[in-house]
């Protein structure tokens, strides 16, 4: 996969400016934890994405954050061939299906960077992406399944909610 191509005009990087100010992935006891720093990677995100960004006004299609990502056999087979740790890390944690959001959180990378990298790896056949079903939010069958699934969750005392 090519990582060259150069960084595009400076204005396109505004979406993830302040990457150093991003909060860490630590689940914090405080609600809405802000401003915790984490050590920056040696490789800057925009070298990896060749300046491309996702989301906002970007031309890169926005992949839903809950999209499931799974490493393919090809991806796992070529694990040692990646130049950048970030690509290898994505493939490695996607041995088990993960959402884009989980990948971003666990690898402590910006969601929009993960979107671009995951799409690159998909194009190269190293990842499989499963987007959510279109219109599932208005699909009574899906809603009923979610309702039934939630109802089966016991509360803290172990009881199951009455129907």
């Amino acid at each position: 996969m090519t990582v060259g191509g150069g960084v595009t005009k400076a204005g396109t990087t505004r979406e993830v400016k302040g990457e150093d100010e991003m909060t860490a992935g630590e689940p914090s006891a405080a609600d809405d934890a802000w401003g915790v720093e984490h050590p920056p990677s040696i490789v800057r995100p925009f070298l990896l994405t060749a300046g491309r960004i996702a989301g906002g006004d970007s031309l890169v299609p926005t992949i839903p954050i809950e999209t499931q990502v799974v490493a393919t056999d090809l991806g796992l087979a070529t694990l040692d061939a990646f130049v950048f740790d970030q690509h290898r890390d994505i493939i490695t944690i996607c041995r088990q299906p993960q959402s884009l959001a989980e990948i971003a959180a666990k690898l402590r990378m910006h969601l929009n960077v993960i979107r671009v990298l995951a799409d690159d790896l998909r194009a190269d056949g190293q990842l499989a992406l499963y987007a959510p079903q279109a219109e599932s939010a208005r699909d009574a069958t899906v809603l009923r399944r979610v309702i039934d699934g939630l109802r089966a969750i016991p509360d803290s005392r172990g009881a199951i909610r009455e129907r």
Binding site: I63, P97, A128, Q133
Partner: peptide, 26 residues
Amino acid sequence: ARSVSADTEGPRPPMPVKMVIAGGFG
């Protein structure tokens, strides 16, 4: 799940659905 890639090897993921929890700070 709706695949966005040509090959579908590997474990089959569940269909993801989401809800949004909103509200003010804290």
